[in-house]
Nucleic acid binder design. Structure first.
Lengths: 341, 341
DNA sequence: GCGGAGAGTGGAAGCGCTTCCAGTTCGGCC
DNA sequence: GGCCGAACTGGAAGCGCTTCCACTCTCCGC
């Protein structure tokens, strides 16, 4: 079925050529002690001459460590991964992994088959550790927390339970920042578009928002789910306009959602920010490019990836890193400027 | 260093429990023939009871097939991967891989260290095959074509040489489409912003554009490199405005570049599309969200990923798939509408 | 001058699975 | 009733590397 894999030189051949035992050769390529200078050099020469590269599979079998970690993204939306959010996470993860010798296995688990593979991979120890970004309320999480006997770092908290290791953004705090900004700039009829109710991040953002408003004594007129997508945001905005009297501010659970909302507002002849101010969440590139550019809650996405990787590496090294909450901050652009309307 | 990996049941234990030889057990889990119905069932029961999952590392060592493919993105721009372009490619690749039992190893090779790892991975057969998106003119490519004795599928043609397997978009054709659109809508003073001169895609786009103009007898006023980035596009546009008399159309090598150009045009008080029409390339989400929304050359990015994966799988199965050029098409939006200025 | 601590060394036993091979069984057919 | 081939079966030899262990050597301190 596959082209006959050409044989690479083995450690035995290196050892023979260098005139040492295989054990010694192994010690040399692993930089282990107990090898005389002379033999070490002989082995190194043989390695060079033969172009020897240790076979990672064999090493993995012998050491019981595969030298790879799994980044799994679990979601329902097919192709949600295409959201630049994840690309950015991957960049962060890669940056950290690059300095280790761990490889990155990527699994997009948004189908039953994908989730099945995820389980297999975890149970068969195809990776030494797992980073899991789960965007649904249930699923592999439960199994993992219990079954997996390898370290699992969560990116974003799962809906239920608090795992041992996780990195999350301060979603609640971000929601409050949005509320405070609206209050500060004189908005008094705010509404919100949330994500799926089973996504903890979405819930936290909305809670923070509600909390911030409550503290200022401003009522929250209405909330509609927007599914984190542009179309979802547009439809949610549609419903909000229909069911609530003239909101003057909307907080969306993501930039994409906010952009959808902008579209609907425009369609209804409402001016942003004059009639309605809009705040998004994430601060990805699209927030800068929308018209008007989006005021949004920035979350450090790349750092999220970095910290997840760092945490996993720490766990693999036997330390017990503490969970991390990354700060969010308000980025003011035109969709919700500093001044009052 | 690592938490003692808890032992999973082995095939031997399964065999013993089922009262058969290890060979027989192996045949069962691999769905191979020559096992009596009775034994087959006994083994299956044992597998279930023990919760046995075959150890992929051991299988890999024995079969000399790792069951994973590598997707490597080589580039100079750090974090270029964050471009949604790649996320989209990854989605396509994943979709295809999901139906196989190949895993996806992702490597962002934009540092010397990353490239080193790439080479190691290829030479040590850490993967059965490679998909390579190389965005620079040189680098691992040369080595690969020659050294790698595993299948390599290129995403986008490398600057020199024509590999055995590749998938590319019809960049040249896309460039022509842009030219034709400008000509058709009465633009007579076009300029272009290209990508790095060592990126074949960038060159092809520009060539196609020049070609299209030439066929219509319209001169190309000027060309400036924009490095595929927004800032690069902005600066290139700045230079173009400085050095050429009032261009009325600009073709940018990517959407990001085009958006940069829009920024500069606005700064100079030029109206898009009234004074200057702009066409981008790629048709990612940002093209829809820019203001004005970007007329652009669409390329089927996800399909690119899918086809790369399909091609690699084909090669791994011993077939010899033919290279593929995916079509591009013009998407008209406001930055270069259908009517004349 | 002697006992030891330690570095060096290679043999051998795995790591968990696949697969070749030499036998066994067994049903069917003449 | 005997013979043949196809379908089973399990032993054993790997796949390529790590690591435990039992030894042998050195060299130092007393």
């Amino acid at each position: 079925m596959q082209p006959p894999p050409k044989r690479m030189p083995t450690l035995d051949e290196v050892a023979e050529r260098a005139g040492v035992s295989r054990s010694a050769a192994s010690r040399v390529i692993n930089n282990a002690p107990h090898v005389s200078r002379a033999k070490r050099e002989a082995v190194q020469r043989a390695v060079r001459e033969l172009g020897f590269v240790p076979n990672p599979t064999a090493q993995a079998l012998a050491t019981r460590r595969v030298g790879a970690v799994l980044l799994a993204v679990s979601s329902d939306e097919p192709g949600l991964f295409a959201d630049p959010f994840f690309a950015e996470v991957v960049v962060g993860v890669s940056e950290v992994l690059e300095s280790t010798d761990l490889e990155l296995i990527l699994l997009l688990a948004n189908t039953p088959r994908g989730r099945e593979r995820f389980e297999r991979m975890v149970r068969s120890r195809r990776a030494d550790g797992v980073m899991l970004m789960a965007l649904r309320g249930d699923d592999p999480l439960a199994r993992l927390g219990a079954q997996a006997d390898l370290p699992v770092v969560f990116g974003g908290l799962p809906l239920v339970g608090e795992p041992r290791w996780y990195v999350d953004a301060d979603n609640r705090g971000g929601g409050r920042l949005a509320a405070e900004h609206f209050v500060r700039t004189g908005r008094r009829r705010p509404v919100a578009i949330t994500g799926q109710p089973d996504a903890r991040a979405a819930v936290a953002r909305e809670q923070g928002f509600a909390e911030g408003l409550a503290l200022a004594g401003v009522p929250l007129l209405g909330v509609e789910p927007g599914h984190f997508t542009e179309d979802g945001g547009a439809e949610a905005m549609e419903r909000l306009l229909r069911e609530h009297r003239e909101p003057d501010a909307v907080f969306a659970a993501s930039d994409a959602t906010a952009i959808g909302a902008l579209r609907t507002l425009r369609r209804h002849g409402l001016k942003v920010p004059e009639d309605v101010a809009v705040i998004g969440f994430n601060d990805l590139a699209s927030a800068r490019h929308s018209s008007p550019p989006l005021t949004t809650i920035h979350q450090p996405v790349r750092a999220l990836g970095q910290e997840m990787a760092r945490m996993l590496v720490g766990a693999l090294e036997g330390r017990d890193p503490s969970p991390l909450i990354l700060p969010t901050r308000l980025v003011v652009r035109e969709s919700a400027p500093d001044g009052s309307p």
